[in-house]
Design a binder for these strands. Sequence first.
DNA 1: ATTGACCTTCACATCTGTGTGAGGGTTTGA
DNA 2: TCAAACCCTCACACAGATGTGAAGGTCAAT
Lengths: 134, 134
Amino acid sequence: MRIGELSERTNTSRRLLRYYEEQGLIISDRCANGYRNYDDRLVDRVLQIRGLLDAGLPTRIIKQILPCLDKPRNIYFPDATPEMIATLEHERDRMTERINCLTRNRDAIADYLDAVLVRRDNRPHAAAEASTTS
Amino acid sequence: MRIGELSERTNTSRRLLRYYEEQGLIISDRCANGYRNYDDRLVDRVLQIRGLLDAGLPTRIIKQILPCLDKPRNIYFPDATPEMIATLEHERDRMTERINCLTRNRDAIADYLDAVLVRRDNRPHAAAEASTTS
DNA sequence: ATTGACCTTCACATCTGTGTGAGGGTTTGA
DNA sequence: TCAAACCCTCACACAGATGTGAAGGTCAAT
């Protein structure tokens, strides 16, 4: 598929697709006329990149962790240098911290919303309250 | 406490503390000489802000969600306009998406690391393998 | 009284992810 | 053949988070 289609299917501007390529996050082969040509799998890949970017990871890090995220991975192991492993462990832990932080705060927002909405439902005009009071 | 101490205790530059204040994320009262004076609770608050920023939330959003994250919250409910509630619900959902994305990818990294490290342990010089083969 | 370690504001700089548009080719269909 | 709709590269612009430094006030200890 060409860049326009990938752009539509991932809801990502052409500009950004070229930028991700420039940063080494995705690759494309070229048609005879110079147009980029993308594999179908790039759709998921781009979505994954966008999710990680949105979660605060810089392209530099995403580029490093992408190779070990490919699905049929157990088939061949790329070069796993000790520094690379250390980097991955570090990023794994940082991501866990992010997850915990987000979870804590999201739960607090959810609790707040629950409280506000319940309070609203219990107002004067409240109607269906039979089971709670009996 | 003054800005230097808050900076040390949160591992955050003075510059950034002033920036967060300018963005309305934290407040400070001033001493007679104009120095900022911070409450002890600001330490946790700043840490929370940093975590959210690191997880990809912009200051604009953080400012909106902070008020409903205060601990003894159930005591008084601030003005919860319908738009505010809609915003919070939206951010809650976006945070859930981020959490899911981070979790998926972190787990993939963890799996990869486990596989690489196990493989390494099973190499020629492996010693303690009695239970696996019997 | 002076020095050093604080603090203030202000302003300019940097990096990253994006947008936008110019200038120019290719392909397709009327 | 011409227009529309693609594609290309390049370059400038912008916003947000952050660094850095200048010019200057305050305070504590020597």
